[in-house]
Computed example of a mutant assay.
Amino acid sequence: MLPATARYVSVAEARELLKGGKLGGIVDVRTPEEVTDSNHLPGARFVNLFVSNFDQSILNLGLDRTRPCLVYCALGGRAARTAARLDALGFKDVLVLQGGYEAWHRQSGELGP
């Protein structure tokens, strides 16, 4: 269950938010083994959910916690867990990409960088 400050967004909605420059940040919480130079959303910052200093790593990104922050993983489960952590860190609008990177890749075909 997502905290009150978070909601799921579709690939189409995430794409529109990206194009419109509406996001304060994009966070990819997959492991380093899952990420390559070409399989991520444009502008994504990487923080492995499983590192011991995850909260500090998120804060070190310097994201604007008052603007929407899109978070994703491979399928969506870790991103949903991350939403609670971001809420606790003071993020006011957390957007969880429904279906994760796999849905993005299947539905949009757009890859980073």
Rank of each mutant, 00 (worst) to 15 (best):
V27H: 00
F46N: 15
D55Y: 00
L17E: 11
L97N: 11
A79Y: 02
D28Q: 04
N53D: 15
D37N: 13
L63R: 10
A83G: 02
R15W: 05
N53L: 02
L75A: 12
G21I: 06
S52Q: 15
L95I: 12
G43Y: 08
L61Y: 15
L75S: 07
R78W: 02
L86E: 11
D37R: 12
N53V: 09
L18D: 03
Y72D: 01
L18G: 02
G62L: 11
G21F: 05
G24S: 09
C73K: 01
E34M: 09
R15G: 04
Y8Q: 06
E16N: 11
T31V: 06
A14S: 11
T5N: 15
A14V: 06
N53K: 06
P42L: 11
S52C: 01
T36D: 10
D87R: 14
G21L: 08
A4C: 02
A83Q: 03
L63H: 12
L89H: 15
R78V: 07
V35N: 03
Y72Q: 03
A12I: 07
E34W: 12
V35Q: 06
A74K: 15
E33R: 12
N53Q: 06
D28N: 15
A4G: 00
R85H: 05
V71I: 14
D64F: 07
N48L: 05
E16A: 15
R78T: 03
G43I: 01
V94S: 07
L70Y: 08
I26T: 08
R85Q: 09
A80R: 10
D64R: 09
G90A: 15
S10M: 09
G21W: 08
D55K: 13
L86I: 10
N48M: 04
H40K: 12
D28M: 11
R67D: 02
P68T: 10
D55H: 00
T82M: 11
E33A: 13
A6R: 12
T31Y: 05
I58A: 00
A44V: 04
L49G: 00
N48G: 07
K19H: 04
G21R: 04
L70C: 09
T5H: 04
L97M: 06
R85P: 01
L23P: 08
Y8K: 09
G76E: 06
L95P: 05
K22W: 05
V9H: 01
D55P: 01
R65I: 12
T82W: 02
D93V: 08
E16M: 11
V94I: 14
R81W: 08
R15T: 09
F91T: 12
